[in-house]
Structure formats: structure tokens, C-alpha cells
Design a protein around this nucleic acid. Structure first.
Length: 258
DNA sequence: CGGCATGTTTCGCC
DNA sequence: AGGCGAAACATGCC
């Protein structure tokens, strides 16, 4: 699940931690920065932010960075804002827990913040470096997108997934943006017109807002059920195409995406 | 068993 | 020098 939209859903859930003190911190040391427990225990939570796909929990000490990899998810006060992970195990085993933090005051039993990640590609960091992230996909402007593409030649799909170009897009949202922009994922950015980048930036803002309201990156028109093969384009009923671009599977409509 | 999965980093090759 | 593609990482599921 974890694209920028899921990070935003979890950021909102984490806001209820503001004002509390972190009193009991446990972390899987294989996914955390050295000294994480000592640096965070006893700190109080001041604010929650998000940059791209990273949730930042600001304390009166360091900021905690949560990155979710492919299968990470979060529970706050025992509540999971997103309970079913696409392309991940439906199980929820405690041995896959990577972070557990109890707070004072506590709400209910169990940890106030819990991150569970079967595949262990997620990371828990101290003061994560977000300086290389591009503009957020949810608010990106045509000017910003044009500037980010300047001097680049790679396939547009590859650049949309590059967090230094635009921050927050994952494989599903990138395909969704291209689908509604009418642009093939194979197009190289040096062939895009000003109209193309304008359409893409506007589509980013509109579709991401709509998908966030609907529940995240699986709620697009190009929903996961259409990605397996043999599905038809919801716009013109042409068979959808699949190919590998930038190491990821792209799904698109060869008829209306050019 | 082989292949694939909402992600990032690293390593060579231009 | 820096962009680019493939491989690596780690684990579960179909």
C-alpha cells in the first residue's frame, strides 16, 4: 500500500499522538538507525508531518522518520487506518512488528504506535534527510514538473517514480496519472509538450485528492483488479497493455494513452 | 517451483 | 559527471 497517499492517511492517524510522551520504545534494530531507542525514549511528540512517502513524528528531540517499503503499515492506539494491504500478507503476526511505542498518557492497552512490515523493506530513522525529495505530487504545479523534467530523457513513467523528481507517487498512482493524462508510460520526457506537463500536474492534484478521499492508491480507475492482465480499458474498452518500465510493471491503454 | 508484488539503494555502463 | 537500467535486498503468496 505504501505510497504517499497511505503515508498521508497514517500521518493523520498519528496526530492523536501529539502532546504525549514516548515512554516505552522497542524497535527491530535491523530496520532502525543506531541509538534509536535512547534518542526517542522520554521525548514528547510536538507535531506530525509528511514528506513524500515518509511520515515524520517531530519530538522535542529528534524527528522519527517512518518509511513503509512495500508492505509496512501502521496502527495507532490499536486502530489500523488501513487494515488490508494489497500485495502483502493478510496476516498480522507480531513477529513482523518493526516498531512499538507506548505513550503517557496511554489510550487503551497495547502500544500507541505500532509498525508491522512482513517484507522488512521499510525503515525507522532519526531525522531523515528529505532534502533530495522533489515537490509533493499532491500539490505539484506545471512549472515545478516542467523544471523537474528539464534536461532529462528517460521514460516519463521512470521519472514519475523518482522521488527526487516528484515525491509521493508509487507504481499505482503513477499509472493512474498517466492514464488520465492520456500519455503512454513509454514516452520520453524530452518529447513532452508544455500542454502535456500542464495536464499531468493538474491530473496529479485532482486524482490524488480524489483517491485520498476514497481511501488511498488502490482506489483509482486503474484499480489493482485491472492490473493482472486481460482487463479492458474502463474508458474505451480496449485491452490494457502491460510492460516493464524502470524495473516496474506499467499498465496502460494503448488506444487513449499516446 | 517460478514468478510476481503499492519500494529504495547500489553498482556498473555509457 | 551524472543519467540510466539492472540487480540486490527480504518475504509472502499464487
Amino acid at each position: 500500500m505504501p505510497e504517499g497517499l497511505e503515508a498521508e492517511i497514517w500521518r493523520r492517524a498519528c496526530e492523536r499522538l501529539v502532546g504525549r510522551t514516548l515512554c516505552d520504545v522497542w524497535v527491530d534494530e535491523r530496520v532502525a538507525d543506531d541509538g534509536f531507542v535512547d534518542a526517542t525514549t522520554g521525548r514528547s511528540v510536538e507535531s506530525i508531518r509528511r514528506r513524500g512517502k515518509i511520515v515524520l513524528i517531530d519530538t522535542d528531540g529528534p524527528s522519527i522518520g517512518l518509511h513503509f517499503g512495500m508492505t509496512g503499515r501502521v496502527e495507532v492506539d490499536g486502530h489500523a487506518p488501513i487494515d488490508r494491504l494489497e500485495y502483502a500478507s493478510g496476516a498480522d503476526r507480531s513477529e513482523w512488528d518493526r516498531l512499538r511505542i507506548s505513550t503517557q498518557p496511554a489510550v487503551g492497552t497495547g502500544p500507541a504506535l505500532r509498525m508491522n512490515d512482513p517484507r522488512r523493506l521499510g525503515r525507522v530513522t532519526l531525522d531523515p534527510d528529505t532534502s533530495r525529495l522533489g515537490p509533493d505530487a499532491g500539490t505539484v504545479t506545471a512549472v515545478e514538473l516542467g523544471a523537474a523534467f528539464e534536461g532529462r530523457r528517460a521514460a516519463v513513467k521512470t521519472l514519475l517514480l523518482d522521488q527526487a523528481v516528484v515525491a509521493g507517487l508509487g507504481n499505482l498512482c503513477a499509472d493512474e496519472i498517466l492514464f488520465w493524462s492520456g500519455i503512454s508510460p513509454h514516452r520520453h520526457v524530452d518529447s513532452l509538450t508544455a500542454d502535456d506537463t500542464d495536464t499531468m500536474a493538474r491530473t496529479c492534484r485532482e486524482r490524488l485528492a480524489s483517491m485520498l478521499a476514497a481511501g488511498g492508491s488502490t482506489t483509482g480507475t486503474l484499480e489493482p483488479g485491472l492490473r493482472s492482465g486481460g482487463a479492458l480499458c474502463p474508458l474505451d474498452s480496449a485491452p490494457l497493455a502491460r510492460s516493464t518500465i524502470g524495473g516496474r510493471t506499467a499498465v496502460w491503454c494503448p488506444v487513449h494513452q499516446r
